[in-house]
C-alpha cells in the first residue's frame, strides 16, 4: 500500500502571552492512500494543531513530514498553497461557506484559486459532479442561509472533493450537527475513502471514529492507538444511532 503521509517526531510549541506551551511533543503518524484514520482527544489536546500541520496551514517546530515520499517539512508558502490546492481537501466544523455565493459557487471556490484555470463549462461539470457525489446537486443554486446544517456541511465536503484530493482533513465536521445528520456527513466522507481518497478525521465522537479504519488518541502531545476502539472493530457492523455515546466532557 502506498504511504501518503508520514510524520516522524513532529513537535509544535505555541507561544502566547503566557509561557510557551508544547502542544505536540513528537508525533509519529503514517497514513496510507485510501486509509481512514480517526484522531480522538480531549479539547486542547492538539488535534486541530496536528491537522493544521498536516494541511500545511502551519509549520512544525521539529520533526519530519513526508508527503508521498517527498520531504515537505520546510516547504515554501507558494509550494504549500499548491499542495493545499491539489493534494488536500479540508472540512471544518463551522462549514465556512460564503453566504453571498450559491452552493455551486462555494464549491467552485476551490477551482477558482489561481492554481491552474478551467473553462467555465468544465468547471461547472466538476462542481456538479462533486455536489452529486454528496447527494445535493439539486441544491446547486441555493445560498447557504437556505440550506440546513447537514446540507451546508455536504456543500463543504463537495468543495473539499472537487479537485480530487489525495487526502481529506476533517476537523470535527459533525460538531455542529445532530447525530443523524452527523452520521450522514460521516457517511459521505467515508464514501470518499472508498474512491481511494485518504481521510484523517478529528472528532470527539467515538461512534464516528469507530467507522474509520484506524483510531488514534492524542494524549500528552503524542499519538497512541485508542484503547477502546481497535482497528476494524466496526467495519463489519454499522453502528446504530446511540450505540456509542460521546464521552462526557469530550464534546464541544
Amino acid at each position: 500500500m502506498t504511504t501518503l503521509v508520514q510524520l516522524t517526531g513532529i513537535r509544535k510549541t505555541l507561544g502566547g502571552q503566557g509561557a510557551p506551551r508544547t502542544i505536540l511533543a513528537g508525533v509519529d503518524l503514517t497514513v496510507n492512500a485510501g486509509e481512514s484514520v480517526a484522531i480522538l482527544g480531549r479539547s486542547g489536546s492538539g488535534k486541530s494543531t496536528l491537522l493544521s500541520l498536516i494541511g500545511l496551514f502551519d509549520r512544525a517546530d521539529g520533526g519530519e513530514y513526508l508527503l508521498g515520499g517527498r520531504d515537505i517539512t520546510r516547504v515554501s508558502e507558494r509550494r504549500a498553497a499548491r499542495l493545499r490546492s491539489d493534494e488536500f481537501g479540508f472540512i471544518f466544523q463551522r462549514f465556512f461557506l460564503l453566504k453571498q455565493l450559491t452552493a455551486a459557487q462555494n464549491v467552485a471556490m476551490a477551482l477558482v484559486n489561481g492554481q491552474g484555470w478551467l473553462p467555465r463549462r468544465k468547471r461547472r461539470a466538476r462542481v456538479m459532479a462533486a455536489l452529486e457525489q454528496v447527494g445535493i446537486a439539486h441544491l446547486a443554486r441555493h445560498k447557504p442561509p437556505r440550506l440546513s446544517g447537514g446540507e451546508q456541511q455536504r456543500v463543504a465536503i463537495a468543495r473539499a472533493l472537487v479537485r480530487g484530493p489525495r487526502l481529506l482533513l476533517a476537523d470535527e465536521p459533525t460538531g455542529a450537527l445532530d447525530t443523524e445528520t452527523g452520521n450522514l456527513v460521516v457517511g459521505a466522507l467515508h464514501s470518499a475513502t472508498e474512491r481511494g481518497c485518504g481521510l484523517i478525521l478529528v472528532t470527539h465522537d467515538r461512534e464516528h471514529a469507530a467507522r474509520m479504519g484506524r483510531t488514534l488518541r492524542l494524549t500528552e502531545g503524542t499519538l497512541t492507538p485508542d484503547p477502546l476502539l481497535t482497528e476494524g472493530a466496526f467495519q463489519s457492523a454499522r453502528p446504530t444511532e446511540g450505540a456509542l455515546q460521546p464521552i462526557n466532557g469530550e464534546r464541544g
Binding site: 507558494r78 499548491r82 493545499r84 490546492s85 491539489d86 465556512f96 471556490m109 484559486n113 489561481g114 492554481q115
Partner: peptide
C-alpha cells in the same frame, strides 16, 4: 478574515 483564510486554505496564494 474568514473568507480570506478559507481561500488560502483551499490553495489560493497570498499574492492572489
Amino acid at each position: 478574515i474568514e473568507e480570506f483564510a478559507l481561500r488560502r486554505a483551499v490553495g489560493t496564494p497570498r499574492l492572489l
